[in-house]
């Protein structure tokens, strides 16, 4: 998939664990794992909004387009 999820990088920058983020944004750790591994087919705007709010970042900091 040409969309890369850079959630790990942002979590390291903010010194936050993925479990903590999952709790803040209200998703399960299993779904967080799907999101981080790039297996997710889609991301809801509400989830993206919650992630950006929790990590104090922009959507572009989390999502990146890389040509195959």
């Amino acid at each position: 998939m040409p969309i890369i999820v850079n959630l790990d990088i942002m979590l390291t920058k903010r010194n936050m664990k993925s479990k903590e983020l999952a709790e803040i944004i209200g998703i399960t750790t299993a779904n967080m794992s799907i999101l981080k591994s790039g297996k997710a087919k889609a991301v809801r705007f509400s989830t993206l909004e919650a992630i950006c709010k929790a990590l104090d970042c922009q959507p572009a900091d989390i999502l990146e387009y890389v040509e195959d």
Binding site: I27, N31, M32, I34, L35, K39, A40, K41, A42, V43, R44, T47
Partner: peptide, 8 residues
């Protein structure tokens, strides 16, 4: 359903 399950 699969797509929905993989929508976070």
């Amino acid at each position: 359903e699969e797509e929905n399950d993989l929508t976070i």
